[in-house]
């Protein structure tokens, strides 16, 4: 439901980054989104098309990589991945998993840009 706010933040952050490359066009924006981030990719893509109009991101592709959920199992003393969002227990010992950090990511990993000057010369 808050995908439009997220996309607006992405547009702001990317626009700020490409301001260092005058006239450059953004071709691709790569995101890392945690499986526990409560974000629906379809909705993100839909909002992206609208929010990028008349910005340096217009026409660019949004590529989303989903990060699985992971945390720490104190009894096994190791970090583990959680396969199902219906049970936050260690896949090895069934003990409770603490500190679920991995899987909440909402991160812009990188952007691919096309330089303006080079385009003019070719």
């Amino acid at each position: 439901m808050h995908e439009l706010s997220l996309v607006a933040s992405i547009v702001d952050a990317v626009t700020e980054s490409v301001s260092a490359y005058p006239g450059a066009r953004v071709k691709e924006v790569r995101l890392r989104v945690g499986a526990l981030a409560a974000v629906i990719e379809e909705s993100l893509q839909f909002c992206y098309g609208i929010a990028t109009e008349d910005t340096p991101l217009q026409g660019s592709a949004l590529i989303v990589t989903v990060v699985p959920v992971g945390g720490h199992c104190p009894s096994c003393a190791r970090d583990v991945e959680i396969a199902s969002l219906q049970s936050f227990r260690c896949p090895l010992c069934c003990g409770p998993v603490e500190n679920v950090r991995q899987g909440r990511e909402l991160e812009i990993e990188s952007i691919e840009i096309e330089d303006a000057e080079e385009t003019v010369q070719s």
Binding site: V18, K27, E112
Partner: peptide
């Protein structure tokens, strides 16, 4: 035509 990858590694909700 030159394209380049710029690493950002920036949280979308960084400001918040």
């Amino acid at each position: 035509m030159t394209t380049r990858i710029v690493e950002l590694r920036q949280g979308i909700l960084k400001k918040n």
